[in-house]
């Protein structure tokens, strides 16, 4: 085997890498470093009094029952969003991949929700499910089903899960569709000739061959549910009622921006950063082994 071409000197590669390094440094390492530094301080909102308190903020956050509640909410929320968004997208992708009339139109329409901003998406759902002004909300109440997500925590959670998952279905759909189209037709035809029914073909051929896509999407969806759903929650429930839909990222916002408790908020975001790094590492290390490429 021939050795690859080796560039002489270190300057050129460094210069070529510089833009990327600069972006990573400015937009990731710098703010992350600032968050770590703030998490070790206790200061007033105006930054006039500042104390170095070591890990005290972390100890307080971890001992705080409302933080643990938010962690539980986040687990329920992220898992539900990922499962719902992935399964719905897979179902839709499999259907749209079939030779049906107007499949191009379906595909286009299914991709649209991805272009909707989270806050707008939330408002759309609000217009559907608001107990006073929402179409479905009013219908539910008229049918004697007590629907009020502003007081019922379970209903509130359900609503933010559905709204967040709906936003993510389009993204997953594109990837699943691409994954489906890259499966060789010959394999499927051979299976058909052997007498395998569609369901069996799906579970024994399509699903395993889709696993790299699914694995990638699982990671992306969990990260989405952890971080990008702030807008949906903020517009729909503001973390309420009684903190029922307060996820970790939302709590970071509430404590930092609303309550001006910067140390606690920074400590929480550092913990969140560690959780997500760990989660991604675990996914790549353990789950990836089971994936057929």
């Amino acid at each position: 085997m021939r050795k690859g071409i080796i560039f002489k000197g270190k300057l050129l590669p460094l210069i070529l890498m510089l833009p990327q390094l600069a972006i990573t440094g400015i937009f990731f390492f710098w703010p992350a470093g600032q968050a770590i530094w703030s998490s070790l301080l206790r200061e007033d909102a105006f930054g006039l009094n500042r104390d170095f308190v070591g890990l005290e903020n972390f100890a307080e956050v971890l001992a705080d029952p409302t933080w643990r509640e938010a962690a539980q909410n986040t687990a329920v929320f992220a898992l539900s969003v990922a499962v719902l968004a992935l399964s719905a997208a897979l179902l839709l992708a499999v259907q749209a991949d079939k030779a049906i009339r107007g499949s191009g139109l379906y595909k286009t329409l299914l991709i649209w929700p991805y272009a909707v901003a989270p806050a707008i998406a939330a408002v759309l759902w609000l217009f559907l499910f608001h107990p006073q002004i929402g179409l479905i909300g009013r219908a539910l109440n008229a049918a004697q089903i007590a629907w009020d997500y502003r007081l019922n925590g379970g209903q509130a959670m359900l609503l933010v899960i559905i709204a967040s998952a709906w936003k993510q279905v389009s993204y997953n759909f594109i990837f699943f569709l691409a994954g489906l189209q890259s499966i060789p037709r010959a394999v499927l035809e051979a299976a058909s000739i052997d007498g395998a029914r569609p369901v069996r073909r799906f579970w024994t051929i399509i699903f395993p061959l889709l696993s790299p896509t699914s694995f990638f999407l699982l990671t992306v969806n969990l990260v989405y549910a952890f971080f990008d759903t702030f807008g949906v929650i903020h517009a729909l429930t503001q973390g309420g009622p009684a903190k029922a839909t307060e996820t970790l990222i939302y709590k970071v916002y509430v404590d930092g921006v609303e309550n001006l408790n910067l140390g606690a908020s920074a400590a929480q975001s550092v913990i969140l950063m560690i959780i997500v790094i760990a989660m991604t590492a675990v996914q790549f290390r353990f789950i990836e082994r089971k994936v057929h490429y």
């Binding site: 007081l151 009622p241 309550n259």
Partner: peptide
């Protein structure tokens, strides 16, 4: 001090009570 936060805390606890908790 921090009264906006206290207001929210009281609202949250009221919500818990109205939920029957």
């Amino acid at each position: 001090g921090g009264f906006p936060e206290i207001r929210n805390i009281i609202q949250e606890e009221m919500e818990r009570a109205f939920q029957g908790q």
